[in-house]
Amino acid sequence: MTVEPFIGLSALLFAIGAIGVLVRRNAIVVFMCVELMLNACNLSFVTFARAHGNLDGQVAAFFVMVVAAAEVVVGLAIIVSIFRTRRSASVDDASLLKL
């Protein structure tokens, strides 16, 4: 089993996820796209682990999952609390970074 198709698929998923982050306005969907990108990375890790014949890549993927879980928890909490005050889950509405 070669590795190139896996890596290519991983790249493709990553790019799709990135486009989604940039295009979608619903914060939850944006979040899902971020997850998509993380998973694409995980696929690469696992593939490279196999290619190199050691388990370090899998460990990295494992850590990514842990961190992603933590991130999702906090991120969704933030979305909920923002929604509670602004009645909107659109990322464009939170444009307070602008002067």
């Binding site: 990135a18 982050v21 940039l22 295009v23 306005r25 990322v91 464009d92 939170a94 444009s95 307070l96 970074l97 602008k98 002067l99």
Partner: peptide, 14 residues
């Protein structure tokens, strides 16, 4: 470039 929209900034980072 400084639109205040987080998505623009994300595009710039990308």
């Amino acid at each position: 470039l400084q639109t205040g929209f987080v998505r623009t900034y994300a595009a710039e980072i990308f």
